[in-house]
Amino acid sequence: MADYYINVILDEGKKATINAAGLADKIVTIDGKEAIQVEMSRKEQKKLVKGFSDLSFDDSNACQLPPEAEDTLLGVIAEMQTLDVMKLAIMKLYNPLAGKAPRAAMR
């Protein structure tokens, strides 16, 4: 069992992407909506919280990514045809230098 989850609520387009990836059997119902749950470790969760400061987790340790990040995650899922994608997806979602000013050139 994973430490944390990313819930991706599916609309028709996202559902088609999941079906095309052969993952229709991974669709679950969350709060009456169709969704997929992507598992992640504590370490990956910490990186996401650093990258998305407004990310919040519910009682089941699940969150929803901002739309742009969710689209990136779905792209990785479609390409790899599995929900076990966080090791690769975290590299595309987490930018440790985001929001930091570039260092001045050494003199």
Results as ranks from 00 to 15, higher is better:
Asp3Ile: 01
Pro67Phe: 07
Lys14Gln: 15
Ala62Arg: 08
Asp71Gly: 09
Val8Tyr: 14
Thr72Tyr: 08
Val76His: 14
Asp84His: 11
Ala20Gly: 00
Ala16Met: 13
Ala101Lys: 14
Gly32Cys: 02
Tyr94Leu: 12
Ser53His: 03
Gly22Glu: 14
Asp25Gln: 12
Ala20Val: 00
Ala16Trp: 05
Ile77Glu: 07
Asp54Met: 01
Lys47Ser: 10
Gln81Thr: 02
Gly99Thr: 06
Thr82Asn: 05
Leu74Tyr: 12
Lys87Val: 08
Thr72Ile: 15
Met1Gln: 06
Leu23Trp: 13
Ile9Phe: 15
Ile77Met: 12
Arg42His: 07
Lys33Phe: 09
Val76Ser: 13
Met1Asp: 02
Asp31Trp: 02
Asp25Pro: 04
Ile18Arg: 06
Ile90Gly: 07
Lys50Pro: 01
Leu74Met: 15
Asp84Arg: 07
Lys26Ile: 02
Leu83Lys: 03
Lys33Met: 10
Phe52Val: 08
Glu39Gln: 09
Ile18Ser: 09
Leu93His: 02
Asp31Ser: 12
Tyr5Asn: 00
Glu34Ser: 11
Gly32Trp: 03
Phe52Gln: 02
Leu83Met: 07
Lys47Asn: 05
Arg42Glu: 12
Ser56Glu: 15
Lys87Asn: 12
Ser53Gln: 08
Ser53Tyr: 02
Thr82Val: 07
Asp3Ser: 09
Met80Asn: 09
Asp3Val: 02
Glu79Gln: 04
Ile77Ala: 12
Met1Phe: 04
Asn61Leu: 00
Lys50Leu: 13
Gly51Met: 06
Lys47Arg: 09
Ile6Glu: 15
Gly51Gln: 01
Pro96Trp: 14
Lys92Ser: 05
Met106Lys: 15
Ala98Gln: 14
Leu73Cys: 03
Ala104Trp: 03
Gly22Asp: 11
Leu23Glu: 14
Asp31Gln: 12
Tyr4Trp: 09
Asn61Thr: 00
Cys63Trp: 00
Leu10Tyr: 08
Gln45Tyr: 13
Ala16Asp: 12
Ala89Gln: 13
Thr17Gln: 09
Pro66Val: 07
Gly32Lys: 03
Met80Tyr: 10
Asn7Tyr: 15
Lys92Gly: 06
Ala24Gly: 10
Glu70Cys: 11
Gly13Leu: 14
Ser41Asp: 00
Phe57Gly: 00
Ala104His: 03
